[in-house]
């Protein structure tokens, strides 16, 4: 890593929107390299720290796409707080598996899930204001904010995450070669 750069650690926030936490799991799969990584970064808000709301950060890693109002609010806040925002994983990049509902009417989805589905008896569509309201379609992150980098994969391999972060920390444009770029 570049010795000329100031020693200050990069502040990193991570979050999962409409994702499965698989990308975070893959992140943890960098295993003992996490220790080396922590010499260069410190975590802000993240499922790993249990800090809920991010402060000013250098880097935001976002897993998952946008399927409801809360996802959008979290993303907009992340965009405000993070200098660099990374769409991590298939869902963040193109909506992923949740976006496979996009050809369906969300009203029909809610009806089927809560009212007419097999095994349901006198159900109702939840309407508590506490619950985030679903969007009519699932969107990738770049449909709503500027995204600086894309890290594909379902999940991105741990080695790809490592490569990506070490490149970024060293001030290089991240380059993933064959084997590290995966869409599945």
């Amino acid at each position: 890593m570049n010795p000329e750069r100031p020693k200050r650690k990069l502040r990193v926030a991570t979050t999962s929107l409409a994702g499965c936490f698989g990308c975070h799991m893959s992140f943890l799969d960098i295993d003992e390299r996490l220790i080396e990584l922590l010499e260069h970064i410190e975590f802000d808000a993240s499922p790993l720290t249990d800090i809920k709301t991010p402060g000013q950060c250098d880097l935001g890693l976002i897993e998952g796409g946008l399927c409801n109002a809360e996802n959008v609010h979290v993303l907009l806040n992340m965009r405000q707080k993070c200098r660099i925002l990374v769409a991590m994983g298939a869902c963040a990049i193109n909506g992923g598996l949740p976006a496979q509902r996009n050809h369906l009417d969300i009203r029909d989805c809610l009806q089927t899930v809560y009212l007419t589905g097999v095994g349901l008896n006198r159900g109702f569509i939840p309407n508590d204001p506490e619950l985030p309201l679903p969007l009519d379609q699932v969107h990738p992150l770049h449909d709503v904010v500027k995204i600086d980098y894309f890290l594909p994969g379902c999940p991105p391999p741990a080695d790809a995450i490592w490569q990506f972060l070490t490149d970024l920390i060293a001030g290089r444009t991240p380059q993933l070669g064959h084997g590290l770029i995966h869409y599945d």
Partner: peptide
């Protein structure tokens, strides 16, 4: 290619 870039 790491992203579709355009809005799907």
């Amino acid at each position: 290619v790491v992203t579709g870039h355009y809005n799907p």
